[in-house]
Write a protein that binds this DNA or RNA. Structure first.
Lengths: 217, 217
DNA sequence: TCTTTGAGTGAACATATGTTTACTGCAGTA
DNA sequence: TACTGCAGTAAACATATGTTCACTCAAAGA
């Protein structure tokens, strides 16, 4: 593919560092892509990743020391994404009754829009490599802390001690992860199954919040 | 190692089929052992597994057509184990108040006694291979159905419709999986961390049951 | 007793893998 | 304009992998 026919560009479309970032990102995407085809991160080979990214194996070492470091970069990306999710939910404003359904719908859309990253997080949070697993868990903990903070600030669950609040948010995050893994496995283009998923998930969260309201001690 | 010095045995200690079962089981254990060293099932190679089991690679094919089939056998074993867990909890009798703490303690002991199998289940329930993942999810669903049945029979959560009961049990199972993955990652020989784990897990379950009691519609 | 069966062996194969090496050619700088 | 740095290349390497084949030799059955 050539762009000679287009208006000639005086400056290159991409400078040196931009190009480097681009192949780095191609490597990251290639890994996610391969995982979407049904294998854990630990089962990917360096050569496969570079082949999928359209570069030669040796190029890999210009960007990462080994495959695990690429994994850590993916965890980092996923963490950024999760923080954006929280922000999106936070700024819907907070009509505390309808909030649940809205949040779940935002969550579903987020999973669809960042399918590969969620797949990565969900499989590697309990995956093979202890290093990756620990990194994912750190992001998860961060997420749940931030959620607790938001809840306190918004005055949801005012009866809870901060310890109980943390415990509840951990439970909510566990439920979210569980739900994500189920959504990712639903057959595509079956809106009925997706609606059922939303309903089940909303019910589970409502149950948890009912429990939190009844919490004593 | 020879046993000539011992009383000569008229019949061999192991007959043909027993020997076969023994190496089969050695292969299964070898795979679990390798996973305990920090890799997902999909990252294991046939040759490693046979080497660890102390047989030659070709022997593998006398027992399984490929590595995935060995994985399915491990899911089967894990399913049996989970059914035993339910049975153990069921037959403690049911003083409905102290039951929670007791069940959690039984669960903790079970995880410790079947560490490798739990590790397998937890990593492969969201792991790379869709086939394995589906198989684990089937066992999980079976488990949660059976739990719902037991709950109904024991008269716990009598206010719930069967749909709500199923939803609640799914939530409980999700929480159990989450808790298992955390326990498996705790550093060994830190009883304080384990006690905290028990407390957190009990609290989360109590929250869920409080929610279930308050459930309407 | 002799024969048959089949679990485990040992060697060979084609292919895939991680890593190193010297290289090329272009963007950025002097 | 000439020079330099460095992202990406091409080739080579030693090793690991999945799968096959003909084999051995002891237990099971005649």
């Amino acid at each position: 593919m050539s762009n000679i026919a287009l208006a000639p560009e005086t400056a290159p479309l991409l400078n040196r560092t931009e190009r480097k970032l681009r192949t780095r990102s191609a490597l990251l995407s290639a890994a996610l892509e391969l995982m979407s085809e049904g294998r854990g991160f630990g089962a990917l080979s360096l050569r496969e990743i570079t082949a999928r990214a359209g570069v030669v194996p040796a190029t890999f070492y210009r960007h990462f020391a080994n495959v695990d470091e690429l994994g850590l970069a993916l965890v980092e990306e996923s963490g950024v994404m999760l923080r954006r999710l929280l922000r999106d939910v936070r700024r819907t404003g907070l009509p505390p009754t309808a909030m649940l359904l809205t949040s779940v719908k935002i969550y579903r859309q987020f999973i669809e829009e960042h399918r590969a990253h969620f797949l990565f997080v969900v499989t590697e949070r309990s995956g093979g490599s202890p290093i990756l697993r620990a990194a994912v868990r750190r992001e998860e903990l961060h997420f749940s802390h931030e959620m607790a903070l938001d809840s306190r600030q918004a005055g949801l669950m005012p009866g809870l001690s901060s310890q109980a609040l943390e415990m509840t948010c951990t439970l909510v995050v566990a439920t979210m992860m569980f739900a994500a893994s189920e959504l990712l496995d639903l057959p595509k283009n079956q809106p009925k199954l997706e609606t059922e998923w939303v309903e089940r998930f909303v019910r589970q969260l409502r149950l948890i919040f009912l429990g939190a309201r009844a919490w004593r001690e």
